[in-house]
């Protein structure tokens, strides 16, 4: 469905020294440097899959999405979606895809939302019957009714994002690209949006590529993860693989009355943990210890803790994906 092979994008950045002198200098001798935003990325997405596309800020996610949607021309490499090259036959290609960039809207700022959908209906040549059914469905999942007659510029962020997602789905695209669709939204709206994505994907076999910084999005939606960093592919596999490969981190939670648990317990010295392998957070009487269970077995941690301080209510949790990714982003992946 989506084939990405050795995709690369370089940007020319003009460098300007500060001040008036710098401005004059760059006027007559413009200097520029190459920035490699996307460096040799390859992956494959089969039909009907939801791919979570993640990576720290500036990793190159948006740049990849822009190339896949035909907005940017790759410096080298190839992407083929549904057998089409996005930049070759733009008008035809964009009919088959839906795109949402969370950071900007594709709705007409001054038009009432309802009319925007009317415009899109004509542009994408959706017939009356499908349009009515589609609007009913979108209304129900994204709850558009309460603001559908208002001009887009008066909508709140959450309303606008729901409206944008509905707009991207109106023409039943085969592939849906979502670049940070949940950015800045509250829990309820996020939930709405996730449900809509899930339903569209399961009912219509829509292939979805989703970038996000909210790992709950990934855990609820993604069948697979592609992680990139500094333009390079660093992980490609299922959420489960990610957890088993990098997920030896565990979380030990307990409540204690002892006054300085961190100072008393001194896990690092006791077990010779490396810097990254353990961290302790205390909040009142509650203590949260994150540790690498590959270095010290869970049983040892538990018995040591129970022997050293007076404990009530102790539990051990599987590492959540957020913790794994936090570590990956911080260390970088070799």
């Amino acid at each position: 469905m989506i084939e990405v092979a050795n995709l690369r994008k370089e940007f020319k950045k003009t460098i300007k020294e500060p001040g008036l002198k710098g401005s004059l200098k760059s006027l007559f001798h413009p200097q520029s440097e190459q920035v490699v935003a996307v460096d040799n990325i390859s992956f494959h997405v089969p039909k009907g899959e939801i791919l979570g596309f993640i990576g720290p800020n500036g990793a190159g996610k948006s740049t990849v999405i822009k190339m896949l949607t035909g907005i940017l021309t790759p410096t080298s490499g190839k992407c083929t979606i549904n057998g089409q090259n996005p930049v070759v036959n733009r008008k035809n290609y964009v009919k088959e895809i839906g795109v949402v960039f969370g950071q900007r809207t594709q709705l007409w700022w001054d038009l009432p939302l309802r009319e925007t959908y009317g415009v899109l209906k004509e542009i994408y040549e959706v017939d009356d019957k499908s349009y009515r059914e589609r609007m009913a469905f979108l209304n129900e999942t994204l709850d558009l009714d309460s603001f559908i007659s208002r001009p887009v510029r008066t909508l709140s962020l959450g309303q606008r994002m729901r409206a944008d997602i509905a707009a991207s789905l109106l023409h039943s695209p085969k592939v849906l690209f979502l670049d940070e669709p949940t950015i800045g939204l509250d829990v309820v709206v996020k939930d709405n949006i996730r449900r809509a994505i899930e339903q569209i994907n399961s009912q219509e076999q829509t292939t979805v590529i989703l970038t996000t910084h909210d790992l709950a999005d990934i855990e609820q939606l993604a069948d697979r993860i592609v992680m990139i960093d500094k333009g390079k592919n660093v992980f490609d596999g299922s959420v489960r693989t990610l957890k088993s490969r990098y997920g030896q981190m565990r979380e030990l939670n307990f409540v204690t009355e002892s006054p300085h648990p961190a100072e008393t317990l001194r896990y690092r010295e006791q077990f010779h943990f490396a810097e990254d392998d353990v961290s302790v957070e205390c909040e009142g009487t509650a203590v949260k210890v994150r540790f690498n269970s590959a270095v010290v077995p869970i049983a040892d941690m538990l018995s040591y803790t129970l022997q050293t301080v007076q404990v009530s209510d102790i539990s051990v949790k599987d590492a959540d994906i957020e913790e794994i990714i936090r570590r990956l982003y911080m260390q970088g992946v070799e």
Binding site: K66, T69, G70, I71, R90, K91, N92, V94, K95, V99, F101, R104, T105, Q106, I123, Y124
Partner: peptide
Amino acid sequence: AMRMLRPVG
């Protein structure tokens, strides 16, 4: 970019 995403001239 938004203009380029539409199937129109």
